[in-house]
Design a protein around this nucleic acid. Sequence first.
DNA 1: TGAAAATATTTCAGAGTGAGAGCAAATTAG
DNA 2: CTAATTTGCTCTCACTCTGAAATATTTTCA
Lengths: 397, 397
Amino acid sequence: MAETADARWANRSSLLAVLLAGGQHSRAGLTQQTGLSAATVSRVVEGLLDEGLVREGAVLQTGRRGRQGVVIEVAAERGVAVGVDLGGTTCRFLATDLLGHSPRYREEPTPRHLAADDLADWLAERVRALYADSAAPDVLRAGVIGLPGAVAADGLGVRGATNLPQIEGELFTRRVRRALDGTVAFGNDADLALEGELRHGAARTADTAVMFTVGAGFGAGVAVDRHVRGGPTGLVGEFGFLPVDSEDHTVEELVGAEGLMRAARDAGLDVDTAADLFVDSSPAARAVIDRFERALGVALIAVTIAYEPELVVLGGRVSASIDAAMTTRLRERVRRRLPACPELVHSELADLAGALGAVSRGLSALRVRFDVAPDAAAAVRADLELSALLSPAGTTR
Amino acid sequence: MAETADARWANRSSLLAVLLAGGQHSRAGLTQQTGLSAATVSRVVEGLLDEGLVREGAVLQTGRRGRQGVVIEVAAERGVAVGVDLGGTTCRFLATDLLGHSPRYREEPTPRHLAADDLADWLAERVRALYADSAAPDVLRAGVIGLPGAVAADGLGVRGATNLPQIEGELFTRRVRRALDGTVAFGNDADLALEGELRHGAARTADTAVMFTVGAGFGAGVAVDRHVRGGPTGLVGEFGFLPVDSEDHTVEELVGAEGLMRAARDAGLDVDTAADLFVDSSPAARAVIDRFERALGVALIAVTIAYEPELVVLGGRVSASIDAAMTTRLRERVRRRLPACPELVHSELADLAGALGAVSRGLSALRVRFDVAPDAAAAVRADLELSALLSPAGTTR
DNA sequence: TGAAAATATTTCAGAGTGAGAGCAAATTAG
DNA sequence: CTAATTTGCTCTCACTCTGAAATATTTTCA
């Protein structure tokens, strides 16, 4: 412990962290970025060149006089990260290289009729195909798969996957993991969506943030100190279970699309989608929406008390129906009761948040496998090439 | 950054961390405890001897054959930590040396009629007296003062101190701090009570824990990864604000002693203390207690969802009335709705939790000032000499 | 063309570590 | 009582790694 060798490793870590965040860096630039001496940077870079983890690229055209620096570029093809968002209806895949570049995105309907085994094989096959895109001989691979259920801290046990019951337990996850030689990890889809927003979306600058996912049901992801928390059994953030009145109605029943539709039916309303309810001005519809707003307000109060987040990101299908007037009313509702209230913003990454978050985690795992210190690996702010994805053509919206 | 000198500092840190945790250690023992080489331990100890931070004590009688080791003991008189729990009615003081030994405890009625200035002077005078007990020439002092209100992250702004209104704002805290030359920090009393239970009480072994303080009002402290969290404005954990029914009753109204007494009066009951309500078997009293239990259940559900703690510690005056039957019912209530439920246990430190937590934080601050790495400083599990305090004679119970 | 400036490498002294030798002090065995 | 053994501590030495400074290299500017 605490040998002198640690220093070298620490320096290599912080240097690699800078390189893996992307951008053009010469050795001189790295000297500035890392605060190390020029000599040390030269030596560490030499080591990385020997490892084949970086290579010298073009000379850096600065326009200033003096000798030009040589760009040190990461051998990005040495790693592949695959992020998957396995939803109840759609499955999204996103693969990138070690730098988060050359994204390849695809989506398919989830074959929800398949049993656990077959679904696992179906998924593994597609991930393997994305892995295979990189032809380099010694590629490290890391896949992260978001599931519509709570994932235990061990990363295998799945619970509460009402949308895709066959993935419950450890059968599905174990089979996927084995089929992919242990290169994959699992996470909760809401947590990964928050991870995405946290690194590349609306919560980019937030330290502590919560994401409400309002879809068929209601879920929340929680990030404290830029670290998404799931809890030992993955229960953390499941504010859908929170009771909101004396009759034991829960947030999920009043806020989720399923609950909304049931309430609409009970009120004799004839609507096809939850979104229709929000634009229906009949008293019956307004009553349902009022209860929606009340319940969402309770959830907002609860998370404000629990974490005092700077930001609550609204995501999920139904969240699109939450307009500015309603967010204003929600914040007022909180402010009437509490001395502070988080910002309320809509998701920036929409459908892609989950897959992006999954890739981000995969990239972190890759960095660690390339022997970057875990803290540094998680702190890297990679500049993924998202523009192509988020342009109108790239997404399904 | 990352010079070789860091290694020496890191080694000094981990060695000091072992020494400050207490116990008898020879150089050989330290070699084992720290994992460092014998040579390094000798060198670091030599440095500490030069600093005057440690000294050689008696020879260690092991009974084994071979040369006897010399005990390296911390110059505990080099630091004084004072913890204060400034309550609405009682103010408790606890002072220890750098090792958490030679505790001096006293309590006085809080002079709640004094204005901010005078109260600050009153408090500072008493803390100064405790500081003065150590006659060593170069003593470092650290005081931590628990206040019955939310303390902002900057450690100065106080809010929601309904029990002791004159400490609101920054006037009181600034004056105390200046009177004590900046050697003091402030914290929320519920947070510090949890800190105490976390380090020396019921939550000793827990990683993530919550403490409910059920007194006149209702507050909660939150510790995640053995780290008590307050939030930017100190709002974190104020689950008293949580609404529990459609009529907007809050947890505080239904659970705090004040709310209980009001409800009792409204129900035409003639009781003197909240405790009486719990042993009253009349239907009216039972109804009040039922609502108490329901609201506490909602708070328990909320914290379980928010943090999934291993443990919820029950503290505060009213918590004594919560018997085993009620905790069992509460846990059943949670389990009916959630897939997991924390343990529910009573505080072990009772009235002293706050002062103990405050001293613990003071000790941490002292360690940091002696240049121990903050992480290591916080992780030290000092063995305070509590037996004298917790024995029947030591407390007010 | 030469001066100035920026990048990169090499050299060197200094700081620090661990292994192992060596010394000191205790117990045990004969 | 003496020698062997064991344990604690220190000293020496080889090694790693760093940053400062000198040097080489390459570019722009006057």
